[in-house]
Amino acid sequence: MSEKEVQRLLLLVEDDDDHAEIAGYYITENYRDINLMRFSDGDIAMKYLEKIGEDEDKKYPWLIFLDLKVPKYSGFEILSFLKSHRMLKRVPVVIFTTSSANKDITEAFDKGANSYISKPIEPEGFETTIRQIVDYWQTNQHMHLISSMNQ
């Protein structure tokens, strides 16, 4: 990755420490320019998200990985908040969860999720999935939008 590129902020909302560690490992291993920020429960995530645009140090993320089963505030509650927010609704949200239940998929897209990926249960699956997600969003042109929002 070229150094002149601006650091991309990726928010990972994940209560499971192991899952967070695995995801973080593959992201930092493959994408040096991504600044990963992890929230272990809904409450912490919401507190950060609500302050974006107010606090200098809290930037609009480039991409959000959101688990559905997180303590305190559920993934859906956070998703609703994001997609009803004036600026945050522009940020792509990837639902990254163990659930592959239809009702969760439906509800996620109803509430404006940009993507819904189930956590893989194969040894090599994790890396493949992470890279596919990040690569895909990398080909989108929204980075400039996020950058201008952060100006």
């Binding site: 499971d16 192991d18 899952h19 695995i22 956590k119 249960i121 194969e122 994790f126």
Partner: peptide, 12 residues
């Protein structure tokens, strides 16, 4: 599934 994801992830 959650611990399974963890196991597989770490195995990877």
């Amino acid at each position: 599934k959650s611990p399974l994801v963890t196991s597989m992830g770490f195995i990877g």
